[in-house]
Design a binder for these strands. Sequence first.
DNA 1: ATGTGTGAAGTGCTTCACAGCG
DNA 2: CGCTGTGAAGCACTTCACACAT
Lengths: 233, 233
Amino acid sequence: MAHIVKSQTRRRRKRGEPGRTRGSAISDLTAQRLSIYLRCLDELRRAGVETVSSQALARQFQLHPAQIRKDLACFGEFGVRGVGYVVADLRRNLVRILGLNRDRKVIIVGAGNLGRALADYGGFNQEGFSVAGLFDSDARKIGRATRGGVPVRAMRSLPALVRRMRVGLAVLAVPATAAQKVFDQVVEAGVRAVLNFAPARLRGRRGVIIKAVDLKIQLENLVFHLIRSRGAV
Amino acid sequence: MAHIVKSQTRRRRKRGEPGRTRGSAISDLTAQRLSIYLRCLDELRRAGVETVSSQALARQFQLHPAQIRKDLACFGEFGVRGVGYVVADLRRNLVRILGLNRDRKVIIVGAGNLGRALADYGGFNQEGFSVAGLFDSDARKIGRATRGGVPVRAMRSLPALVRRMRVGLAVLAVPATAAQKVFDQVVEAGVRAVLNFAPARLRGRRGVIIKAVDLKIQLENLVFHLIRSRGAV
DNA sequence: ATGTGTGAAGTGCTTCACAGCG
DNA sequence: CGCTGTGAAGCACTTCACACAT
């Protein structure tokens, strides 16, 4: 996946500090790792582990201890010297820092195979996210529902729903040719962040965050490394 | 997307040079951009553009001209001074460098919503990739087929198929709890590179390349930036 | 005149190493 | 003593700026 959100350390913070940040800005790489840490902590919690040192975390999940400490230190002092981190506490803090304590509405545009799969994907409808709507422009799909029971709505009804439900996020699962047009539409409706599955490079807009997830680029990248790692395959 | 393939510039090249590399190793970031360049060139070709300068490419696709030149220069001198790059030529070279001129077999493990959607996804069955099989461990799914007509096979038959068809790549679309086990199975069968959609951190194995595509991490990351970019939402 | 290819400078990310605290 | 938090060092990636080719 190629991101549009690139290094932003240069960008200064301006307003209130929703995560109680210490020091300037947070790099995107750090932000991504916070989510990974959260996953790891969930796993440890399920395993009944109560405290964990950065070293133990790093060993188990193949990270670097100093990096974990540095990443966390951006937001406060969560550790106990001589002991490590209390799993439950750190988890709660990460949830807060990542803004997952409030429910976020997501719309999915494109009710093809992928769009329907995403609409039914459990991960979206738990822990902080909920699917507010699934849209398509194909009249034959509109009105029908996914296996999971999510109805397909007309694009025409998108702006009203986005405003009414205060939807901030959109997932684009449309063909590459439609991607830019659909992007413009959802932004116009009020969406502030977009996860793009279409294999197209979107022309962004000020204040709108874009992340691209491109399966073919991922596969191509695997092949690239594969070829070079040993003598062919 | 959080990758496991991290910076590898330090790693020295050892054997033959399948992409005719000049100078030591290629960074993963460069590799990912090569795929992006290929996409851009396809778009330009469709638009009937015959030559393009790094500057024009960069403007149109929001990249940096020097970076494009540097990335390409790793593999040879493809440009014409005073003119730019011949779209068709550069495209052909990128296809070769990325190893897309040969067909790659891919298996998909997990025939849930996502797995089936991926099996039917057009992008996999064109331009260098083909789905060699879709597998699941659920007896109720085995024998049935996706909308696109891809049959679901038993996990038991996986190793034989991987060997017979020389499958090098696997896509994991299984629940997080099953991910590590399935990973070990496909690696044991001979797969050398894995694209992991399961929200779990895989414990890798020497010589096996892993890329993780985690939807929830992507969404979380969007929210993170969203919260910080302006005063809430 | 125009645009590549590339050493050098600039920037940001990661890792080290240790002071300081429990 | 063990482990965090952190300045400093190391390393990798990006961008600049210009020699050189056409």
